[in-house]
Design a protein around this nucleic acid. Sequence first.
RNA 1: GGUCUCUUGGCCGAGUGGCUAGGCAGCGGUCUGCAAAACCGCGUACGGCGGUUCGAAUCCGCCAGAGACCUCCA
Length: 490
Amino acid sequence: MKNQFQVYNTLSRKKEVFKPLHPGKVGLYVCGPTVYGKAHLGHARPAVTFDLLFRYLKHLGYKVRYVRNITDVGHLANDADEGEDKIAKKARLDELEPMEIVQIYTNDYHKNMEKLNVLPPSIEPRATGHIMEQIATVEKILDSGYAYESNGSVYFDVEKYAKDHPYGQLSGRKIEDMQSNTRALEGQDEKHSPLDFAIWKKAAPEHIMRWSSKWSDGFPGWHLECTAMSSKYLGDTFDIHGGGMDLIFPHHEAEIAQSKAAFGHNSVRYWMHNNMITLNGQKMGKSLGNAISLDDFFDGNHPLLEKAYTPMTIRFFMLTAHYRSTLDFSNEALQAAEKGLERLLKAVETLEQIQPDKQSTINITELKSKCYAAMDDDMNSPIAIAHLFDGVKIINSISDKKASISSTDLEELKSLYATFIFDLFGLQKVETKSDSNSSAYEGAIDLLLQLRMEAKANKDWATSDKIRDELTKLGFEVKDTKDGFSWELK
RNA sequence: GGUCUCUUGGCCGAGUGGCUAGGCAGCGGUCUGCAAAACCGCGUACGGCGGUUCGAAUCCGCCAGAGACCUCCA
C-alpha cells in the first residue's frame, strides 16, 4: 500500500508528508508527566494521541524508538525560575522523601496508562537519572556563548541568542513583544533579561533535591532535561517531538534554542502538539483545580461525574475528536461515546459469526482505503471511525441477510476491523471470564432461557415475559433471535 | 494589555469554495406474540453584518462571544 502519511508540523503550521531521517526508522520524543500528583484526564490526551502515532508508525512498517520522559526534578511550582520544586513541595506537604513522591505518582501514571491500553514507550528516562547528561549540555551551551553564569546559576541568554537565531518561531511570537510584555518578577536580578531562563539553578539551603556541579550545588532547569535526554537516546537530530499545546511556550521554544546552541542546528524535524481537554469550555488543568483524575473516572467518584466510565470509553471518546481540536468533557458526550463504542465492538462480534457467500454486494476495498486515507491525513481518527461506523451498517446488513459478502472480502473486512479497532485505536473488548464458576452460571442462565423458549412455544406469554423481565431487572439483556435467544450481562 | 485560535443541527464532533461525515438523543416504518437488537427513512446546521464569486458554512473585512498562550500546567 502506498502511504503518504501527512502530519501537521507546528513549526511550519501546515501538513507535511512524513519522511523519516533514516529510512525505515523513526525517533519519537514526547514530553511525559511531572509526577507530583495523580494522573488526570489531561494526561491521557497526549498519551493516547502519541500512542496512536506510535501504533500507526509501527503499522506502516517503521521501527520506532519512542522516548517519553518522566519529569521528577526541576519543575518549579511558582513563577519562572523561582519558588519550590513541584516534587519537593509535595514531599514536604506529605512528609515523604521526594523520590517516594516520584515513585507513587509514576506508579499511578503507569497503572492508568495500562488501563487505557497505552503502550509503554521504548525508553522512559527520568530527569534525575540524567543529571550528568544535563550538566554536559549546560557546558555545551556555555561554550556556545549563549548562556552565562550568575551567582552559581546558569541562564540561557535569550536576547543574545535572538540576535543570531530566530527565537519564537514555534509559538509565533516576537522577541520585541515579549520584552515589552514580560511581567517583572521579584528576585530575578541574577538574570540579564526577564526572558532568560535557568538551565542550572543554584539550590537554596533548604532545597533538598540537589546535585553538585562546578557552578554550584543545585539542580537542572526544567527545559533542559528534554534536550539532554532526547539527544542521548535519539541523537541530536530526530524525527518527531510531541507534547501538549500548552508546552509550546516556553518549554519547546526553549528546547529549540538549547539544542541550536548546544549542537549548532535544530534537533527536531516535526513538532506535533495535541490540544487540550476542556471542562465547561475551560482548560482542564491541575493548576486550575478542575482536573478530574483518571481513577475518579474509572470509579465514578467525583461530583461532576454521573457515573463511572471505563478506560476504553475514555480512550474512544478521545479518538472521536481530532487530536488538534479541543475536546469538551461532559457526561452526555462520554455516554454517547460509551454507546457508540458498544455498537462498534458488537459489530466486531457479529463479524465473527458471518458466513461468506459466493459474491459480495458491498465494496470492502473502498472502505479500507477510506480508513487509511483518514489516518494518513494527520491521523484523522474521527473520520476513520465514521467510516468504521459505515462498515457497521454493512456488517449488520450482512448478518440480517440483506447483503452478502464473499469469503475473500470477509477476511479482508475482519482484518480491517482487527487492525483499526484493536491494533491502531488500541480498543479492547470487555473480557468475559470463562472459568468453571462462570460456565456454571452461564449454564444456569441458558437453562432459564430454554424454559422461556418452551413457554413461548406454548404461547405462555406470562411465563415467558416474567423470565425475561426478571432477568432484565437483574441487569441482563435478553434478545430473541431467529433460531433462539442471546443474552449478555450489562 | 499583547499574540493567536475558535464559534457547525437537541448534545458531541468531522469537513470544506458547488457533490453538504459519523456517533448519541428524537420521530416514523420493517421485523417481533410483545419487546430488545438490527435494518430503512426523516431533521437540511454552520455566531451576526457586509464584501469577493456564477456559487460561501468554507475566502476577505467588521462586530459579538468564547478560549489558549504570554507564569507552573498534558
